[in-house]
C-alpha cells in the first residue's frame, strides 16, 4: 500500500488528438477528443464523470485502460507513470465494466471461461484454484455457482452485468472504470447493480471512475464529480458542492435537465438552444459560449483559465481568478 497522500490515479495535462479525414479526398483535420485533462483520484473515491455524448468521456476511459495512448500528458498510477508499466501490470490494477452486458460477454464462451480469462492471461494459479476463485467471485457478485456452465444468452441483463463485474474484480484491481454500467439495464435491475457496486467498493476499498449521463445515479454514488464539455473538464467539485451549488452554467443546465419523478414540476427548459458543437470545429473562446445563457463578449474571444479553489476547479469567465 502506498502512502495516503499519493493519489491512486492521476492524470496530468492529458491531451488526445485524432486526425480525421473529411470526405474521400479531403484534408486531414485534427480532432481534439480530450484537452489538458488533469484529475487526481484518492483511494476509495468515486469520481463521477458527466457530459454529453462526444465530450471525450469514452476516450478518457480508453486511455486509462491502456487501450489508447495519450498524445501528450501523463497518466500516473500510485505515483508511477503508466508508460513505464507493462500492459499486464496495468491490467492488474485497472479494470473496466462496460455499458452493454449483451456486447461485453463473448457469446461463444461459458460463464466460467469468461470470468477465468484474466487469471489465464496472467497465468495465475492452476485449473483447480481458478475454479475456486471463480466460485468465490460469483458468490460475491450474488450469482449461484451453477451458472458457471451457462452461456450469456441464457442469462438476463442484470445477471450478465454481474458476470461482467465478476470478471473485472477477479484479479482484485484497485481502480474500476465503470462506463455507463447501468444504462442498458431495466430500472428494477439498475438499483441492484448500483447497490452491488457500492457494497463492493466499501468491502474491497475500490476506487471508481464512474461515467454516466444519469445525474441522479452520479449524485447517489459519487464522492466527487467532474463535468466535461468538448474534451475539457469545465467544473470539478465534491458531490455536495456540485449538486447543491453548481457554478458553471453548463453544469447548471445539466442539473436542470434531470427528470425526477415529480409530476408537478413539468418539463424543464434548459435554455441550451443550439445543439452540441462539432468537435472538429470547436467554437472560439469559451467552447460553451454559443449555448450559454450568460455569455458575454469576453467569452466569445478568450478562453477562460481554470480556477482552482477549495471547492475544486472551474473554467468559466463568471468565476475568473
Amino acid at each position: 500500500m502506498s502512502q495516503s497522500d499519493t493519489p491512486v490515479l492521476e492524470l496530468r495535462n492529458v491531451t488526445k488528438t485524432y486526425s480525421v479525414k473529411q470526405g474521400l479526398l479531403g484534408k486531414s483535420k485534427p480532432l481534439t477528443a480530450i484537452s489538458d485533462v488533469s484529475i487526481k483520484l484518492a483511494r476509495g473515491e468515486v469520481l463521477g464523470l458527466v457530459g454529453e455524448s462526444g465530450c471525450g468521456k469514452s476516450t478518457l476511459a480508453n486511455i486509462l485502460l491502456g487501450l489508447e495512448a495519450p498524445t501528450s500528458g501523463e497518466v500516473l498510477v500510485d505515483g508511477q507513470t503508466l508508460g513505464g508499466q507493462d500492459r499486464l501490470a496495468l491490467a492488474r490494477r485497472i479494470q473496466p465494466i462496460f455499458q452493454d452486458p449483451y456486447s461485453s460477454l463473448n457469446p461463444r464462451k461459458n460463464i466460467y471461461d469468461i470470468i477465468a480469462l484474466p487469471l489465464r492471461v496472467h497465468g495465475i494459479g492452476d485449473e483447480a484454484s481458478r475454479q475456486k476463485s471463480v466460485r468465490e467471485i460469483l458468490d460475491i457478485v450474488g450469482l449461484p455457482a451453477r451458472v458457471m456452465n451457462n452461456y450469456p444468452s441464457q442469462m438476463s441483463g442484470g445477471q450478465r452485468q454481474r458476470v461482467a463485474i465478476a470478471r473485472a474484480l477477479i484479479m482484485k484491481p484497485e481502480i474500476v472504470i465503470c462506463d455507463e454500467p447501468t444504462s442498458a439495464l431495466d430500472v428494477s435491475v439498475q438499483s441492484q447493480i448500483l447497490n452491488l457496486l457500492n457494497e463492493l467498493r466499501q468491502e474491497f476499498g475500490l476506487t471508481y471512475l464512474f461515467i454516466s449521463h444519469n445525474l441522479a445515479v452520479i449524485e447517489h454514488l459519487a464522492t466527487r464529480v467532474a463535468v466535461m464539455y468538448l474534451g475539457r473538464i469545465v467544473e470539478e467539485a465534491s458531490v455536495g458542492g456540485l449538486f447543491d451549488a453548481a457554478r458553471h452554467p453548463y453544469t447548471d443546465a445539466l442539473l436542470k435537465s434531470v427528470l425526477t419523478p415529480e409530476p408537478e414540476l413539468g418539463i424543464p427548459d434548459t435554455h441550451l438552444g443550439m445543439s452540441y458543437p462539432n468537435p472538429i470545429a470547436p467554437p472560439e473562446g469559451c467552447h460553451f459560449h454559443p449555448r450559454c445563457p450568460a455569455a458575454s463578449d469576453l467569452c466569445k474571444s478568450k478562453r477562460p483559465e481554470p480556477l482552482f479553489d477549495p471547492n475544486g476547479r472551474i473554467e468559466c469567465h463568471l468565476h475568473s481568478p
Binding site: L65, A91, Q95, P96, F98, S103, K109, V121, H122
Partner: peptide
C-alpha cells in the same frame, strides 16, 4: 466490448484473435 475487455485484461493479440474473434 468483449474484445475491449480482453484487451484491457492484457490478453495477447493471437489470443484475442483465436479465442475472442474466431469463434464468433
Amino acid at each position: 466490448e468483449y474484445v475491449s475487455a480482453a484487451q484491457a485484461v492484457g490478453a495477447s493479440t493471437p489470443r484475442i484473435l483465436l479465442s475472442e474473434i474466431m469463434p464468433n
